[in-house]
């Protein structure tokens, strides 16, 4: 019993530490300026001041940015899923020359920091004329080299290796070709892995700001592509320019910045609350850890 209490105590303490930044963020984002300056107000603001959110949303162009962010995350994710599934299946079910070397390259491409290939890739996209468009994310994903694609290929590889070979043989006896066996048997059986990959790929694309700014935005302010995370990164400057142009006499303070942070987190947070089961069980079911 005592042991149980210790475990609960530890879990609750660590859980609090985990949630601390989030709690701090939400509480600060709801404070008005008087609360911020008043040292007696620590956690609970005297009134729920939602104006911060309105200001932050205006500065970030919340709704258009939100829509673009979804596109930027969703399109490459779909390509990622389809292609990684195919490649993982190819590696898992067929024996061919050079497979070991290819797997080696796959692992190597995961370890290699993207900074090494970043500059020539940037030049390449520039030459192809797709810099500053969403194609810079879709195209690599379409060729199995999207963000964290090696992980996804390995997830599918692991998964398909566990699908019994007898199943495939039965299908081929019934007259199904390779392609048909893949679509009719492998794909439906891989739904847990597909869910995992979709969730993780979406989240990672959504949260990627470094490469998004470099490729999809093309490092120019004229590009129409942006997502919430990038808007947050450039929040201070954009807020100041908008505030000086506009007539509202708002000034940048912690509350507004925390409100902006909360806004950029919010979509994924809501998605997480809805799909929590899929998220926390996904790694289990995708069989990353092997059997």
């Amino acid at each position: 019993m005592g042991k149980q209490l210790i475990v609960y105590g530890l879990l609750i303490c660590i859980g609090f530490v985990y949630l601390y930044p989030m709690l701090y963020m939400f509480s600060t984002s709801l404070m008005n300026r008087d609360d911020l300056l008043d040292t007696s107000v620590k956690w609970i603001p005297s009134s729920f001041y939602l104006q911060n959110y309105v200001d932050a949303a205006k500065s970030m162009d919340f709704w258009p940015t939100f829509g673009k962010g979804i596109l930027i995350a969703l399109l490459p994710t779909l390509c990622n899923v389809v292609i990684c599934m195919m490649v993982g299946y190819g590696f898992a079910k067929y024996e061919f020359k050079g497979k070991k070397i290819m797997m080696g390259i796959l692992l190597f491409s995961y370890i290699l920091p993207s900074q090494v290939t970043m500059i020539p890739t940037y030049v390449l996209y520039n030459k192809m004329g797709i810099l500053g468009t969403i194609l810079t994310f879709v195209l690599p994903a379409l060729f199995g080299n999207g963000l964290n694609a090696p992980i996804f290929i390995l997830i599918f590889y692991q998964f398909f290796r566990q699908v019994p070979k007898v199943l495939m043989e039965a299908a081929s006896i019934d007259g199904a070709g390779h392609i048909r066996a893949f679509f009719r048997i492998a794909v439906p059986s891989a739904i847990p892995a597909i869910v995992t990959v979709i969730l993780f790929s979406f989240v990672w694309y959504w949260n990627e700001s470094y490469l998004t700014e470099m490729y999809v935005r093309g490092l120019s302010t004229k590009s129409i592509w942006t997502n919430l995370v990038i808007q947050l990164k450039n929040f201070d400057s954009s807020f100041n320019t908008k505030a000086s142009v506009g007539d509202t006499a708002t000034s940048l303070n912690e509350s507004v910045r925390m409100a902006a942070t909360a806004l950029s987190i919010l979509p994924l947070f809501v998605m997480y609350l809805i799909l929590q089961r899929q998220f926390v069980e996904s790694i289990d079911r995708a069989g990353i850890t092997g059997e």
Binding site: M25, N207, S209, Y210, M258, I265, L268, Y272
Partner: peptide
């Protein structure tokens, strides 16, 4: 789910 460069930077800079 929520960890990303700018979010972290924001939280760190505000002392959260």
């Amino acid at each position: 789910i929520i960890v990303s460069g700018p979010v972290m930077n924001m939280l760190v800079s505000e002392g959260a």
